[in-house]
Amino acid sequence: MQPTVRQLASVWAALLGFTLVEVGLAYPHLSAALFLIVLLALSVGKSAMIIGFFMHLKFERRALSLALFPLLIVFILVLLALLPDAERLREMRF
């Protein structure tokens, strides 16, 4: 199974569209935290499209996704444990 040209083209168009949405969102000046969350959500969506269609993971066996991603996601989340320390550091600088 492979993605069709039509599918690839629509993914491409959607990615460009999402990018424009991201750029557009930069100008209403949302709060930094909200903006970051929205941007990251959009980015995760875009990556899912790239991974699913361009890297045709959607057309591979489910086992491959299960082997590759859960661990990676866990470790990325674990790395976020650094951030409370960064907040704290801001308080403790002198």
Binding site: L71, V74, F75, V78, A81, P84, D85, R88, M92
Partner: peptide
């Protein structure tokens, strides 16, 4: 193997890391 990634902070107890971490 998995837990091994979740415990690195024990090398940093006295490093000035957050006491809650």
């Amino acid at each position: 193997g998995l837990l091994g990634f979740l415990v690195w902070g024990h090398h940093m107890f006295i490093s000035g890391m957050s006491p809650y971490s």
